[in-house]
Design a protein around this nucleic acid. Structure first.
Ligand SMILES: [Zn+2]
Length: 406
DNA sequence: TTTGCCGGGTG
DNA sequence: CACCCGGCAAA
């Protein structure tokens, strides 16, 4: 009875602004421990509580870290069936990948702001393959498995002197040109090349690939003296139609794109995709409830957050080197996508190195300083007064936020 | 005004 | 203890 009260309590008190949050959103978000944990009781009413989950995630068919389609031109056939949708995916993937990898890139000591304001460096190039290598926690990592994006095309014909053209041959070159590589980041998928040869409508992602295709198949491999010829037999198609900002009332930046990003994409089997998720009406919820409940407990049970400094790094905060939580990403990928901020604080929080080595306990250090006001957005702001059930426990109790500490 | 949360209350 | 809220200060 007590348990029921606790759960139902807040919920009932709620103004119930939710249109009709009575449905069970959590579908397949986390079929493992998540389910078990949150499922403790109230099987039906788990929706309103922490059980709520971002729909985007729910739609994901837990395939796997989805390998980049731009791998090579092997995916030509399937790509041709529905260039629109597939391309969308790629775009999304590219964007996401870029944004993710670009920021927390290498290992700069004080990097904290995931915004590569300055374009033109090694963000794209470096990130392209280090997206997962360096920052393993960012879930989907395929880089470790398939490092070579499109070897066949680019290299196979390496002997040919196609250096004149556009210089776009840097398919896997780690960034050398300025704008070129920058462009590549986006056109990596968006820019497709279609063969104009009568009867052939092949679409390739890479220019060189297209050239090669034309040269080999149409112009004839034998006489490879027509470098410029190929240019006339293919055209550059670019289908961009995805709006920059998805109509999502949620404060979280992603979630909109995410859903579609992973929804389609049938790389495992083949063509007939699984039809897009019908969850388009209302799309907002908690991205992942795992961490949430984790936190909640954290506040209650893990209160004794003493020093526990590591004997090596007294520094304020340093990220856990890629190695501790290495095996995790693979699994996490299943329902990978989490939040934006949520994930951040999570990983930050997960590290035990979060202490004030200085004033550990001089004598009584309890001076009642008003502690100004943290600048970090707290649960309240992030989730809003409505959806209060997603706040961390502390916030709900009007205590110092535990999820987004200062 | 909103937001964060301390201090105090209740069961 | 968990849970909630009045009310204050900062933004
Ligand atoms: Zn909070």
């Amino acid at each position: 009875m007590a348990a029921m009260k606790s759960r139902a309590g807040p919920r009932a008190t709620q103004p119930a602004t939710e249109e009709d949050g009575g449905l069970i959103y959590m579908q397949c978000c986390g079929q493992e421990d998540v389910d078990a944990q949150k499922h403790c009781q109230n099987p039906v009413q788990s929706s309103s509580g922490p059980g709520r989950v971002w729909p985007s995630t729910a739609a994901v068919p837990k395939s796997n870290p989805f390998t980049f389609p731009q791998s090579s031109n092997v995916d030509l056939p399937y790509r041709y069936r529905s260039p629109e949708s597939v391309e969308m995916d790629e775009i999304m993937a590219a964007m996401v990948l870029t944004s993710l990898s670009c920021s927390p890139a290498v290992q700069s000591p004080p990097q904290r702001d995931p915004l590569p304001a300055a374009p033109g460096d090694m963000e794209c190039g470096g990130g392209e393959l280090s997206d997962s290598g360096s920052s393993g926690y960012w879930s989907w990592d395929h880089g470790s498995v398939s490092p070579a994006p499109s070897p066949s095309v680019t290299e196979t014909d390496g002997s040919v002197g196609h250096s004149v053209d556009e210089g776009l041959q840097m398919e896997l070159e780690p960034g050398l040109s300025d704008e070129t590589e920058n462009m590549r980041c986006k056109s990596l998928s968006r820019g497709a090349y279609r063969c104009l040869w009568p009867g052939c409508g092949k679409v390739l992602t890479s220019r060189v690939g297209m050239k090669r295709h034309i040269r080999i198949l149409h112009l004839g491999s034998g006489s490879e003296q027509s470098h410029r010829e190929e240019d006339f037999y293919y055209t550059e198609v670019s289908s961009e139609e995805q709006e920059p900002t998805p109509p999502s009332p949620d404060p979280s930046f992603f979630s909109g794109p995410w859903s579609s990003c992973s929804s389609t994409h049938s790389q495992s089997t083949h063509g007939p995709q699984e039809a897009p998720p019908p969850s388009s009406a209302l799309s907002q919820s908690a991205p992942s409830s795992v961490w949430q409940i984790h936190t909640e407990h954290l506040y209650q049970a893990c209160t004794p957050i003493e020093v526990t400094v590591l004997p090596g790094s007294p520094a304020s905060c340093d990220r856990p080197p890629p190695g501790g939580l290495q095996s995790r990403p693979q699994i996490t990928t299943t329902r990978s996508r989490s939040v934006s901020v949520g994930e951040q604080w999570l990983q930050r929080n997960s590290a035990p190195t979060r202490s004030q080595t200085m004033s550990a306990s001089p004598s009584r250090g309890h001076c009642s300083f008003r502690k100004g006001r943290g600048e970090a957005k707290k649960c309240r702001k992030v989730y809003g007064v409505e959806r209060r059930d997603q706040w961390c426990t502390a916030c709900r109790w009007k205590k110092a936020c535990q999820r987004f500490p200062d």
